[in-house]
Simulated scan of single mutants.
Amino acid sequence: MNGQGGQPGNRPGRDDSPDRLYTLTGGRSRSAPDNPFDLVTLVVAECDPVPGMQSEHAAILRLAERPTAVVEVAAVLRLPVGITKVLLADLLAAGRVSARHPRRTAVTDPDILEQVLVGLRNL
Rank of each mutant, 00 (worst) to 15 (best):
Q54R: 12
Q54Y: 03
Q54M: 15
Q54N: 14
S55F: 09
S55R: 15
E56Y: 08
E56W: 02
E56K: 10
H57A: 13
H57P: 02
H57F: 13
A58G: 10
A59W: 04
A59V: 09
A59I: 05
A59H: 13
A59K: 12
A59N: 10
A59M: 06
I60G: 01
L61T: 04
L61D: 01
L61Q: 03
L61N: 01
R62D: 10
R62V: 15
R62S: 11
R62G: 11
R62W: 06
L63K: 03
L63T: 01
A64F: 01
A64T: 10
A64M: 06
A64D: 02
A64H: 02
E65D: 11
E65G: 06
E65Q: 14
P67M: 07
P67C: 05
P67I: 07
T68M: 14
A69M: 08
V70Q: 02
V70I: 09
V70R: 01
V70S: 05
V70W: 00
V70M: 07
V71D: 09
V71Y: 12
E72Q: 11
E72R: 15
E72A: 14
E72T: 11
V73F: 03
V73A: 04
A74Y: 00
A74N: 01
A74S: 14
A74I: 02
A75P: 01
A75S: 15
A75N: 07
V76R: 14
V76P: 00
L77Q: 03
L77T: 03
R78N: 12
L79E: 01
L79S: 04
P80S: 08
P80R: 04
V81Y: 05
V81W: 04
V81P: 00
V81G: 03
G82D: 15
G82T: 10
G82P: 02
G82F: 07
G82S: 12
G82N: 11
I83N: 00
I83T: 15
T84H: 04
K85A: 07
K85Q: 15
V86D: 00
V86C: 06
L87I: 04
L87V: 11
L87M: 12
L87D: 00
L88A: 06
L88Q: 02
L88Y: 03
A89Q: 14
D90W: 02
D90N: 11
L91Q: 01
L92M: 11
L92V: 03
L92S: 06
A94W: 05
A94G: 10
A94I: 11
A94P: 02
A94E: 15
G95N: 07
G95L: 04
G95Y: 07
G95I: 13
R96M: 09
V97N: 02
V97E: 00
V97I: 15
V97K: 00
S98P: 03
S98N: 12
S98A: 15
S98L: 12
S98Y: 03
A99M: 08
R100L: 11
R100H: 13
H101F: 04
H101L: 08
H101P: 02
H101V: 08
P102G: 10
P102L: 06
P102M: 13
P102Y: 11
R103I: 09
R103K: 10
R103L: 09
R104H: 05
T105I: 07
T105W: 12
V107Q: 15
V107G: 05
V107T: 13
V107H: 15
T108Q: 14
T108C: 14
D109W: 08
D109M: 06
P110T: 13
P110N: 08
P110W: 10
P110Y: 04
P110I: 09
D111E: 13
D111R: 15
D111H: 08
